[in-house]
Each structure stands twice: as structure tokens, then as C-alpha cells.
């Protein structure tokens, strides 16, 4: 068994947060008498990730995903528990550790805002001490994969969100990090740009066997990029396992979508499963997962089926169910 690339053991991070209600009176009161609350952003989370694995890190807003990533990046000191990334303790911020990973935050920007992205690349080359030959090879590869060449000489402030995100990824990956923490890397991107980023990440993972921990609210990202998911909520681990296991565990049904050659009474369709909707000719039914095959076979023999498709429920639905159960 390989040593895990990332190991988190009972990681806890609490914040003391100043609290005040809206309004002038509250503002004045708060000036003289501060109220604080302890927020358990991460509360005893444990997991480990093997080298080369791509793992989805899911949870609703405020679940503790970004705080965990910040602990793993060494930005935050854990309140208790331990974290290890490539054998390093992140918050000690050893130089070798800082050279071996990257953190990309979709809503933030590390590029020099008023300068072309190329300037940031050159500064990163110097800071990460990337030899010239290696830098040129790496840059050419990133520019080609991310289709960056038209934007290299434009000030970052003049780039579109998608163009900026691609430049951001290039800046973050020039030093060939072995671990990638990606916090909403496709946030706000259109479908084409998001697909390009996903393609690139898959490719990077295959080429460099990088370990990736990814948070995203876009389930397409999770489904396309990862097999394993870790789900947290209110700072606590809710699930850690295969994406299909998560679906099996939380949604005991599948969707059967049918098109028929003639209208069929909804009551008749109800004999096969729960009718989600129907216009008589087409229908969507929910059936028990372990009875899917048998039900589909019965439908084919007893109904005037022209077309039939068996689908998994939407991952958004799966995640909603996980959190609804808490």
C-alpha cells in the first residue's frame, strides 16, 4: 500500500467570529461591546487520498470545504487534529512543501491584474526556481492545452472570466505541482470554457499523476473528473466513497424514460412504478433500483414501447438527499 498523498486525521478548525445584527443601533452597541461566537468550520474530519487520485470534495455553502483546503495548503493552523500533504505538515510551510502543491480558487485571482499574464508566469518561474528549458517546455504545453496564446499579451483585467481562469490555471501549474487543491475551478464559466478546464485537468492528471482534491457545485465537474467523493456538512464528514456507492446509498430508485406508439392511461403506467410525469405518449417513472431490469423487461412486453432509457438520478438530486437526511 502506497503512502497517502494527503492524510487528514480528526482535523478541526474553529473560528471566533464577531457577530452583530444589521442596523445603526446594533453597530453602535457592537462598537462598545463585542459579541463573539465560536464557529466550528471543520469538526473532526478524517480521510486519506492516494497519489494520483482525483477526489471530489462536496458539501453545501459553509460546509467547511474551503477551510479544509486552506488547512491543507498551510494557510490556516488547525485548532486540533493533524494533516499531512506529501509527508509535510502544511502549516509549518516548509519551502519544499510550498513548491509541491497549488491552490486554485475559482473566485480569486493570483495574476497581476494590470499586467499581461505572461508577467505572472515569469515571476512564478523565478519564485519557483524553474530552469529556463523546463519553463519553456511547461509553458508551451500549458499554452497549447489551455489555448492561451491569443491572451498572453493582454492585461489580465481585459480578459474574460474564462480566459482569466485558464491563465490562472497555467500560472498555478507552471511549477508542475504534485498535489492540486481546486476550489470551484469552473465557477462562473460558460459551458465551453468549463468543459475546456475539465479536459485540461483530466489531461494534467494523466500526464503527471497529480493528486487532485476538487470542490465544485457543478455536478458535471464531479461526475466527469472524479470517481471518489468526500461529502462534508457542518464541518463533519458525511460520506467518503465511490460516487456510484453514494448514489446507491442515497437514492433507492432509478429513472425509466419511455416513449410509446400510442397513449397509455397513467393508472396503467403506475403499475410499473411512480409516475413522475407523463403526457400519455411519453413518461418518466421512478422504479426501485433492484427491480429496474425486471420492470424494464415487463414494460417492453406489456406496453407499446418505441424507446426506453434507464437513467441514474441527477447528482444534484443525490447531494440534496444526502443533506436532507442530516
Amino acid at each position: 500500500m502506497q503512502e497517502p498523498a494527503i492524510k487528514v486525521d480528526e482535523l478541526t478548525k474553529h473560528f471566533r467570529v464577531h457577530q452583530r445584527e444589521a442596523g445603526l443601533a446594533s453597530g453602535v452597541r457592537s462598537f462598545f461591546r463585542r459579541k463573539y461566537a465560536d464557529v466550528k468550520a471543520v469538526d473532526g474530519v478524517s480521510f486519506s487520498i492516494q497519489p494520483g487520485e482525483m477526489v471530489g470534495f462536496l458539501g453545501p455553502n459553509g460546509a467547511g470545504k474551503t477551510t479544509t483546503l486552506k488547512c491543507l495548503s498551510g494557510l490556516l493552523h488547525p485548532t486540533s487534529g493533524a494533516a499531512s500533504v506529501l509527508g509535510f505538515t502544511p502549516h509549518l510551510r516548509r519551502q519544499e512543501f510550498l513548491r509541491s502543491f497549488t491552490l486554485v480558487m475559482g473566485q480569486r485571482n493570483q495574476l497581476f491584474w494590470d499586467l499581461p499574464a505572461m508577467e505572472t508566469f515569469l515571476v512564478n518561474q523565478a519564485i519557483y526556481r524553474i530552469p529556463e528549458k523546463e519553463f519553456r517546455i511547461g509553458l508551451d504545453e500549458l499554452v497549447a492545452l489551455l489555448e492561451l496564446s491569443p491572451y498572453l499579451d493582454k492585461p489580465v483585467r481585459n480578459l474574460s472570466l474564462g480566459e482569466r481562469m485558464r491563465a490562472e490555471l497555467a500560472a498555478a501549474l507552471l511549477h508542475r505541482p504534485r498535489v492540486l487543491f481546486l476550489d470551484e475551478p469552473t465557477l462562473g464559466l460558460d459551458v465551453t470554457a468549463a468543459a475546456a478546464v475539465r479536459r485540461f485537468l483530466t489531461d494534467y492528471n494523466e500526464r503527471h499523476q497529480a493528486t487532485v482534491l476538487l470542490t465544485s457545485h457543478y455536478m458535471t465537474d464531479v461526475a466527469e473528473l472524479t470517481r471518489r467523493v468526500i461529502v462534508i456538512d457542518h464541518g463533519r464528514l458525511r460520506f467518503d466513497g465511490n460516487l456510484t456507492e453514494l448514489i446507491d446509498a442515497t437514492t433507492p430508485h432509478r429513472i425509466i424514460r419511455i416513449t410509446m406508439s400510442e397513449p397509455v392511461d397513467p393508472a396503467r403506467l403506475g403499475e410499473f412504478g411512480d409516475v413522475v410525469n407523463t403526457d400519455g405518449v411519453t413518461a418518466v417513472l421512478q422504479v426501485r433500483r433492484n427491480a429496474t431490469k425486471e420492470t424494464a423487461a415487463r414494460m417492453l412486453s406489456e406496453l407499446p414501447i418505441e424507446d426506453i432509457a434507464i437513467e441514474e438520478p441527477e447528482i444534484e438530486e443525490v447531494i440534496r438527499r444526502v443533506f436532507a437526511e442530516r
Partner: peptide, 17 residues
């Protein structure tokens, strides 16, 4: 090299506006 690269960038930022 680090100082050279950072200085070049910051002079560029200073001259941007």
C-alpha cells in the same frame, strides 16, 4: 532572479496608469 522578476513586474504595474 526573484528580485529582478518582481521588480520588473512592479515597475510595470506602476506604469500601468
Amino acid at each position: 532572479a526573484v528580485y529582478k522578476a518582481l521588480l520588473r513586474a512592479h515597475i510595470g504595474i506602476g506604469l500601468a496608469y
